[in-house]
Amino acid sequence: MANPRRPRRRGQGELEAQVLSALREADGPATAGWVQERLGAGLAYTTVITILTRLLAKAAVTRERSGRSFVWTPVSDQAGLTAHKMRKLLDGESDRAAVLVSFVTSLDPDDERLLRDLLGQAKGEGDVGAGAEGEGDD
């Protein structure tokens, strides 16, 4: 029988997402103590520091010294953090083309269309005078 006092186990990355969300709600750089108070639920200060340090290693947050402590600022939102994870996984593969082909061919038609549109927009940003043509043609 499960211990009724033990909180449920969080999913992978859930606590990182909660910490990032709390930091995004802050009016500016926030301390680990502020994040701990915001998240509550008996979360240990050392756990918050561990998560912030992991996010720092993933370049998802920055920190700067403030007195004897650090203040933390989010660099990216959840989408940016997920994109970073995807790039890190891709960088670990020897056959990048095979991974990308497998990824793209597994997308549903709507996601594939969105990806094609985004790639077209990114390509257009590098062209001289791009952006004026086709705007508002949805």
Rank of each mutant, 00 (worst) to 15 (best):
Ala2Glu: 14
Ala2Lys: 13
Ala2Gln: 11
Pro4Met: 11
Arg5Ile: 09
Arg5Tyr: 14
Arg9Met: 12
Arg9Cys: 07
Arg10Trp: 11
Gln12Gly: 07
Gln12Val: 14
Glu14Tyr: 02
Leu15Phe: 12
Glu16Ser: 06
Glu16Trp: 01
Ala17Pro: 00
Gln18Lys: 12
Val19Asp: 00
Leu20Phe: 01
Leu20Ala: 01
Ser21Ile: 00
Ala22Glu: 01
Leu23Ala: 00
Arg24Asp: 02
Glu25Phe: 01
Ala26Ile: 01
Asp27Ala: 12
Asp27Ser: 10
Pro29Gln: 03
Gly33Val: 05
Gly33Leu: 04
Arg38Tyr: 02
Leu39Tyr: 02
Ala41Thr: 11
Ala41Gly: 08
Gly42Ser: 09
Gly42Trp: 09
Leu43Cys: 08
Thr46Ile: 12
Thr47Leu: 03
Ile51Gly: 00
Leu52Met: 06
Arg54Gln: 14
Ala57Tyr: 09
Lys58Val: 09
Ala59Leu: 11
Ala60Cys: 12
Glu64His: 14
Ser66Phe: 13
Arg68Glu: 14
Arg68Pro: 12
Phe70Tyr: 15
Phe70Cys: 07
Pro74Arg: 01
Ser76Glu: 10
Asp77Asn: 11
Ala79Met: 07
Gly80Phe: 04
Gly80Ser: 05
Ala83Lys: 10
His84Ser: 14
His84Ile: 04
Met86Arg: 12
Arg87Met: 13
Leu89His: 10
Leu90Asn: 05
Asp91Ala: 13
Gly92Thr: 06
Gly92Phe: 06
Glu93Gln: 15
Ser94Thr: 15
Ser94Ile: 15
Asp95Ala: 11
Leu100Met: 10
Val101His: 07
Val104Met: 09
Val104Gln: 04
Thr105Asn: 04
Thr105Tyr: 08
Pro109Ser: 06
Asp111Arg: 13
Glu112Thr: 09
Glu112Gly: 11
Glu112Tyr: 10
Glu112Ala: 14
Arg113Ser: 07
Leu114Ile: 10
Leu115Phe: 09
Leu115Gln: 02
Gly120Ile: 08
Lys123Ser: 08
Gly124Lys: 06
Gly126Cys: 10
Gly126His: 14
Gly126Leu: 15
Ala130Pro: 01
Gly131Val: 07
Ala132Gln: 12
Glu133Asp: 12
Glu135Arg: 07
Glu135Pro: 00
